[in-house]
Simulated assay, not measured.
Amino acid sequence: MRAFIAAICLFLLCGNAVANSVQDSTTPADAIVKALYDNLSAAYLCRDIVDADKYLKTRSVVEATMLAFTNKQDASETILKKWEDEIQINLKYQNQNISVEECNTLLRARTHQLYVAMDTLFK
Rank of each mutant, 00 (worst) to 15 (best):
K82A: 08
S25V: 01
A42V: 07
K82S: 13
D53C: 05
K81N: 07
A42L: 01
I49K: 10
L40Q: 10
A31W: 00
F69K: 02
K34Q: 09
A75G: 06
Y44S: 14
Y55A: 03
T58M: 00
S25K: 12
Q73K: 05
S25M: 02
R59W: 07
L80I: 04
S76H: 01
K57I: 05
S76A: 14
K72A: 05
D74F: 10
D74N: 13
A31T: 02
N71V: 07
Y55G: 09
R59C: 03
E63A: 14
E77S: 09
Y37W: 03
A29Q: 06
S60A: 13
V61C: 04
V50A: 05
R47M: 06
A52Q: 03
W83M: 10
Y55N: 09
T70W: 07
V62K: 09
I79G: 11
D48H: 13
I32T: 04
L67E: 14
W83R: 01
L67A: 06
V61G: 09
T26P: 02
E77I: 00
T58Q: 02
Y55K: 03
I79S: 08
M66K: 05
A64E: 13
I79E: 15
Y37R: 00
L56E: 15
T65E: 12
K81I: 07
I32R: 01
A35S: 03
